[in-house]
Design a protein around this nucleic acid. Structure first.
Length: 280
DNA sequence: CGGCAAACCTGCGAGC
DNA sequence: TGCTCGCAGGTTTGCC
């Protein structure tokens, strides 16, 4: 599923329900995910209070009251499901199940097991291997064209590929890279290093806008992604280019038969969708 | 440093 | 109906 807007949506739901609650029980049903869960995961988490739920890039952070944080990543197919009452009967890919002191249940489910869940000390967490070297948060106030330009400048690769590199900007995946480049009118094939100041400013603004709108829509639900409530996100209905090969570009007035509409190419093994006439 | 393929897994839709 | 193939929102590793 999840890029920044989906993870942010999940974090907000979890924060609203779990913040300040104590984790009464923890049931680890499968340890082998992208990283194996620590052997003492359940013992270290059970009985602790959740201080808050935060996000860094595509990671969910749940600092506990003993300065240890649960770190979770949803990979491609991971889901966090929040329900009232005791935990439901575990399904086939329910890997970790939490129950709070006030009767809520949280299930971490991940069919493809590209996700992970682990623990880390809150102090110095930025130096943790999962976060060290991670790029700036695109929704932070400090993120602007200058900062983006700095990050892209050293990259001798296509701007689309660079955007998806978590060391350049945190939280951008295939969908929002395509959508932001469309909004900024920049060809995904353009080299990252020579975008220039004006394009960097436009791209930084486009990223902020598309991510903010997607969060307001509860994220994009294509296959697996659901909000913790079970609801679908709705931003997939507002994609301009993603998954729309051959369709008319929403910003173009040209004849579809002449332009061929939105194109799909492969970059770094990933599908890129763009409008060749509007994105230069 | 960059590009590319493969690996980790399962599920789903398309096509035969 | 049922099978195989290709593809999927992510990240890491190894090779050239």
């Amino acid at each position: 599923m999840p890029e920044l807007p989906e993870v942010e949506t999940v974090c907000r739901s979890l924060r609203g329900r779990l913040e300040g609650r104590r984790l009464k029980s923890v049931d680890v049903r499968r340890r082998k995910l992208r990283l194996p869960l620590p052997p003492d995961f359940a013992a270290r988490v059970a009985g602790r209070r959740v201080v808050t739920v935060a996000r860094r890039g595509k990671y969910i952070l749940m600092p506990l009251d003993d300065k240890v944080a649960i770190i979770a990543h949803l990979g491609m197919s991971g889901r966090m499901t929040l329900t009232e009452g005791p935990p439901p009967v575990p399904g086939p890919h329910d890997h970790v199940i939490f129950e709070t002191d006030d009767g809520a249940s949280l299930v971490f489910n991940d069919a493809r097991r590209f996700g992970l869940m682990t623990l880390a000390d809150v102090d110095g967490i930025d130096a943790h291997p999962l976060f060290r070297g991670m790029g700036p948060e695109p929704l932070a106030d400090a993120f602007d064209g200058r900062l983006l330009g700095q990050a892209l400048d050293s990259r001798n690769t296509a701007v689309k590929t660079a955007l998806m590199d978590q060391r350049v900007v945190a939280g951008i995946g295939n969908i929002y890279a395509c959508e932001a480049l469309f909004r900024a009118g920049i060809s995904p094939r353009r080299k990252a290093k020579n975008l220039g100041g004006a394009r960097c400013r436009g791209l930084a603004a486009a990223l902020k806008r598309v991510l903010t709108e997607a969060i307001e829509a509860g994220g994009s639900s294509l296959r697996d992604y659901r909000r913790p409530s079970g609801e679908l996100g709705t931003f997939q209905h507002r994609f301009a280019v993603y998954g729309r090969e051959g369709e008319a570009c929403p910003g173009c007035c040209c004849d579809l038969r002449e332009t061929g509409g939105i194109r799909r190419i492969l970059q770094g093994g990933r599908a890129t969708f763009f409008c060749p006439s509007r994105q230069r």
